[in-house]
């Protein structure tokens, strides 16, 4: 899947399907992390349908690239991507958040395709560093792609891991930071300023880029560029729009957790279909 020139039109279609799945899941429970799932769909499409080396039929393939979801509540997006990739059945998405379902609101390692339990935020990058060290010890080619949120940059553990990643020159480690400018209590900058981000990651010794995280071609370009930088781990800071693809969610006052009236879903679906 990887190495060739990306088929952007195809990746865009995948991203749209991922968004359709996200709406389907959220509508079932009437609430949830819709904004996050929609906002990160472009990255997930670029990873699962272009960059990542994995085998949907053999998830424990030792040579697989690891996708590490540090942010458990973004699992709605990962379930959507995994369903689109054929890892979990699409119909199973209807069980999202239901008692007994594998598709928990805050995802865990007991769901196929999850490398660790995220959700107690700030764990992901450290485990990603550990996986990258382990893969290198085993002389495997596999790479580690970790998805973090801007809120996780408030946690000290994230920066401890960043320091270690650079110290050990893990150039097969890629961290994507979803900067949707929202944390639980409000806009990130108001809660606790994290800028200037690019300078921080650079100062920590990372090959760093900052891009529009909702443009698939920018994502695939950034990954291609990162792969040419040696002896450093790679940080790709994604500026994303929460709710991307559904104008009513893009425009409504940003919330970490949104409630949606039953009658609004049809409009949401229509707006997604009308989007590019």
């Amino acid at each position: 899947m990887n190495g060739n020139n990306p088929d952007i039109a195809c990746l865009k279609a995948r991203a749209k399907n991922i968004r359709r799945h996200v709406l389907r899941m959220a509508e079932r429970v009437g609430q949830g992390y819709v904004g996050q799932g929609l906002g990160i769909a472009d990255l997930l499409a670029a990873l699962y349908f272009h960059e990542l080396r994995y085998d949907a039929k053999r998830l424990d393939w030792p040579e697989r690239d690891r996708f590490v979801l540090s942010i458990g509540h973004y699992s709605i997006g990962l379930y959507a991507a995994l369903a689109e990739a054929g890892v979990i059945p699409i119909e199973e998405l209807d069980t999202y958040g239901a008692d007994g379902s594998r598709l928990e609101m805050s995802g865990s390692e007991f769901t196929p395709g999850f490398e660790m339990t995220g959700g107690s935020l700030g764990h992901g990058l450290g485990q990603a560093v550990g996986m990258a060290l382990g893969l290198r010890l085993d002389a495997r080619d596999a790479r580690v792609f970790c998805l973090l949120s801007d809120g996780e940059l408030h946690e000290g553990a994230t920066w401890e891991a960043a320091m270690a990643g650079a110290h050990y020159r893990l150039d097969h480690l890629f961290a994507f930071i979803d900067c949707n400018n929202q944390v639980a209590d409000g806009p990130t900058a108001q809660v606790m300023n994290i800028e200037p981000l690019q300078l921080k990651w650079q100062a920590f010794g990372w090959d760093t880029q900052r891009i529009n995280g909702n443009r698939i071609e920018d994502i695939t370009d950034a990954i291609a560029r990162a792969k040419t930088a040696r002896n450093q781990p790679h940080a790709i800071i994604l500026d994303t729009l929460m709710g991307k693809g559904v104008t009513m969610f893009e425009n409504r006052e940003k919330q970490h957790f949104i409630r949606v009236e039953a009658r609004e879903w049809e409009l949401a679906r229509k707006q997604l279909e009308a989007s590019l």
Partner: peptide
């Protein structure tokens, strides 16, 4: 057993 969905109440 009762069943429902996880809620953020």
């Amino acid at each position: 057993m009762r069943t429902g969905v996880t809620a953020n109440l």
